[in-house]
Design a protein around this nucleic acid. Structure first.
Lengths: 65, 65
DNA sequence: TAAAAATGTAAAGTTTTATTTACTTTTAGA
DNA sequence: TCTAAAAGTAAATAAAACTTTACATTTTTA
């Protein structure tokens, strides 16, 4: 699993802390997701995708099959 | 959060056990998701959406804002 | 270049997802 | 209608998401 959170966050010119607050999670959660430390819930993924105006499938990409 | 897993599973004429096996999770996990008992990981959501040939956003719907 | 802001990291603790086992109830087929 | 498959439920456990706190490092900006 890789994701475009860091890039899309940069596009919106938001800090990890700002994004975290917007999404109702901790800054460390954002950091961990950006570093592929974990696999967020679909709810959080949906909220992020909506904020970034991207489909979940483009924001989070499963490596292989 | 609601979801269309039960409906889409019916469209593919699969049992909970078959779907579970296909996705590499337990039958109870499928059951719990169908009953909105929990919020799956984005990875599992992506696998389901791909199997059902639907965007994650259509398979899993956040209730409000 | 010094200070402040942002990011990285880490550890302990909580909550929730997911597994396993087992049993009951419902549904479908012979 | 009897039977078997499927689905519902539940509880104990394991694993992972997420929180909180705290501090170090990097980047930005005054």
């Amino acid at each position: 699993m890789k994701n475009l959170v860091k890039v899309e966050r940069a596009r919106l010119d938001m800090t990890q802390a700002e994004l975290a607050k917007e999404l109702g999670v901790s800054r460390q959660t954002i950091h961990a997701i950006e570093k592929d430390k974990f696999n967020p819930s679909v709810t959080l993924a949906l909220k992020m995708a909506r904020l970034f105006n991207l489909p979940v499938e483009e924001l989070f990409i499963i490596d292989e099959d």
